[in-house]
């Protein structure tokens, strides 16, 4: 039996071309999507590369672990004796983050539980819009609130000599991280299967018993992720912190009773970078390959950037491990 030969006509050629064009389009789009996916990895690595490149000379020539991390003396612009100790800056970031989480976690988990479980539909919509507005306020406006509103308030209420301190910045940053924690926590609470709630209610659990014994345990992965994202926000926040902390190099922790003195001014890693980058010149190496002493300031700010990188990396890894740990316990 003869196989019917396809005639070579204009219509056939057109059909054949069309098929190939479609196939090419398919490959092109797949390639594009692939590129988009890979690009995020490339961006992260290139950011890390450039930050590391700027900071590398400092790490090579004058980096000393003990003096860098364990000394509170931050005098990068001293003429005779430049000292680069970031302990005070770390302590500043730490103190602001602690206060911020003390403010944000109870508030935002409470809000999330209220929105997801306790309120009526209309209140729910209204609350969500308000929380989203909170997220849309620019950080410099938050800093302004810290400067003009909470600053005098803190002076009035606590009798502190100055209201620009770790407490003030912590409150401001805490309020800033409320929306992000609320939205993720609310999502994870709503993701709890209705069957759980139904079963608990049928057993005679009150509303609060259901939330406390069933919904929170079931949603704890998401809640943990929400809180850690809030921590990330608090560590990385710059502008509001710069305006509200008082910006003085100081360790708010010591051996005296409250151990943590939130009413002292502090300075954070991020605020240091943004405040000093403008006045730190980027100088090239001289003829003999060594950098002038003035070039170190610029470089050390990038090293601080690397430190921030590492901190966020550690937070993310802890979050990851914690979530995985919870998962493994189930098996």
């Amino acid at each position: 039996m003869a196989i019917p030969q396809k005639k070579i006509t204009a219509a056939n050629i057109f059909q054949w071309l069309w098929k190939w064009i479609r196939q090419l389009c398919e490959w092109f789009i797949v390639g594009l999507i692939y590129l988009c996916g890979v690009s995020s990895i490339i961006f992260v690595f290139s950011i890390f590369y450039f930050v590391f490149r700027e900071g590398a000379p400092f790490l090579r020539d004058c980096f000393d672990f003990k003096n860098f991390f364990l000394s509170p003396e931050w005098y990068p612009t001293s003429i005779s004796n430049k000292r680069y100790g970031i302990l005070a800056l770390l302590a500043g970031t730490g103190s602001v983050t602690i206060v911020a989480m003390l403010v944000a976690v109870p508030f935002s988990l409470g809000t999330a539980i209220f929105i997801a479980e306790f309120c009526k539909k209309k209140t729910k919509e209204a609350m969500k819009i308000v929380v989203e507005i909170l997220a849309a306020i620019p950080s410099v406006v938050w800093g302004f609130i810290g400067l003009m509103v909470t600053n005098p308030l803190i002076v009035k209420l606590t009798g502190a000599p100055i209201g620009l301190n770790a407490l003030n910045a912590g409150i401001i940053v805490g309020l800033m991280s409320v929306p992000i924690i609320v939205s993720i926590a609310e999502d994870s609470i709503r993701a709890v299967p209705d069957g759980y709630i139904e079963a608990a209610e049928a057993l005679g659990a009150t509303r609060w018993q259901t939330v406390y014994r069933v919904i929170l345990p079931a949603a704890k992965n998401g809640l943990l992720a929400a809180v850690l994202l809030g921590v990330g926000r608090a560590v990385g926040e710059t502008m509001a912190v710069l305006m509200a902390t008082g910006h003085s190099v100081n360790i708010p922790f010591n051996g005296e009773f409250p151990y943590f003195h939130a009413l002292e001014s502090v300075r954070t890693l991020t605020a240091t970078i943004v405040a000093e980058m403008g006045e730190a010149p980027r100088l090239d190496a001289g003829m003999n390959g060594s950098f002038p002493a003035e070039a170190r300031h610029y470089q050390v700010l990038f090293v601080i950037g690397i430190v921030l990188f590492v901190i966020t990396f550690v937070i993310n890894t802890i979050a990851d491990l914690a979530v995985k740990g919870i998962r493994q316990k189930k098996v």
Binding site: G195, E201, L203
Partner: peptide, 20 residues
């Protein structure tokens, strides 16, 4: 109403183990 529900045992068609 919780007192009432405690007097009535209820088994649903699809098993719902609480996450405990």
């Amino acid at each position: 109403v919780y007192e009432l529900r405690r007097r009535i045992g209820m088994v649903f068609p699809l098993p719902v183990g609480l996450p405990l």
